[in-house]
């Protein structure tokens, strides 16, 4: 449940472990996506008790089928896998054991702390970025959620909250691209490697498929290369060394210093760095004949 409480002049919403299940799916299309992410956030919490198991078995596939249908997301295969996965379980304990073996029991095969898939470790820069995003969004983790703020349920619930706000502190798409876009496909792969028939494998695949819609278009390799080359040649950036012969800037002073140091380390001179490569031949009286 999201709690609103004034703190330092602004509302701070508290994200809890008890993510509310959607009361009704009879709602406008704009809310469907929000409810979809809240539902998934709920599904990735530990399934404690018979009620959670019953909701997982009976309600979750139906709700997801309806929500993805409204959203226009083709997820029939994932929902069918979810149904098959949960159908082989007869009691709540089985689902809890499955959850524990995948997400809790060391060595954890598929951790739900998603920054591990991005940073390769806990408490990395991605977690810092997430905490900053929570601060910008005015969202805080409630004390009774005993996990790190990069837990999948926290992130998905936050995403749902941001999607429902008219002027969020951080754009929902930007938030998704901090961690979820990169991590969810890897979570799905990790679960599939460990337990491909698990209902959680289907859920993770569905989440990965849905989050792809929020992925920011990345620049193509050629665009990145072009931008990098432009920055490298930008004479307004840094202090440039001008050629002793032609006076044209040809490298930054910092780069020349790095090169001179590298050459000195292997016993090579660096006097020739005073001229640009184009002027060195002429300085020695050399010239080329053009081949036409």
């Amino acid at each position: 449940m999201l709690d609103a409480a004034p703190l330092a002049g602004r509302d701070v919403r508290h994200i809890t472990a008890d993510v509310p299940a959607p009361a009704s799916t009879d709602m406008s299309g704009a809310l469907n996506e929000q409810v979809f992410w809240l539902t998934l956030a709920n599904a990735f919490l530990p399934p404690k008790g018979e009620a959670a198991f019953a909701a997982f078995r009976d309600g979750l596939p139906l709700d997801l089928a309806e929500l993805t249908g409204e959203m226009g997301l083709a997820a029939d295969a994932e929902i069918a896998s979810l149904r098959m996965g949960i159908a082989r379980m007869s009691e709540a304990l089985e689902l809890l054991v499955e959850y524990s073996s995948l997400f809790l029991q060391p060595p954890v095969p598929a951790p739900l702390n998603l920054t591990r898939y991005v940073d390769g470790s806990v408490n990395g820069p991605c977690l810092d970025a997430l905490e900053n995003a929570y601060r910008l969004a005015g969202i805080a983790k409630r004390d009774d959620l005993r996990d790190l703020p990069d837990h999948i349920a926290v992130q998905l619930e936050t995403l749902a909250v941001l999607l429902g706000e008219e002027q969020p502190g951080i754009d929902a798409r930007a938030f998704a691209n901090l961690c979820l876009v990169g991590a969810l496909p890897r979570l799905a792969a990790a679960i599939a490697a460990e337990a491909p028939a698990s209902p959680y494998a289907a859920l993770a695949r569905l989440a990965a498929k849905a989050i792809a819609g929020l992925a920011e278009p990345t620049d193509s390799a050629s665009e990145r290369r072009h931008r990098r080359a432009q920055r490298r040649a930008d004479p307004t950036l840094g202090v440039w060394r001008s050629c002793d012969s032609c006076g044209r800037p040809f490298a930054r002073e910092k780069e020349i210093a790095i090169m001179a140091k590298a050459l000195a380390q292997v016993g090579l001179p660096a006097e020739h760095l005073a001229r640009c490569p184009d002027c060195r031949d002429a300085a020695q009286g050399f010239f080329r004949r053009q081949i036409k």
Binding site: R225, R228, A229, R232, F250, A251, E255, I256, I258, M259, A262, L263, A270, H272, L273, C276, P277, R280, D281
Partner: peptide, 16 residues
Amino acid sequence: CIGCKYCMIACPYGVR
């Protein structure tokens, strides 16, 4: 290669 051209500047023979 990232195209930084350090090697071109450092090479005293101008063959890059």
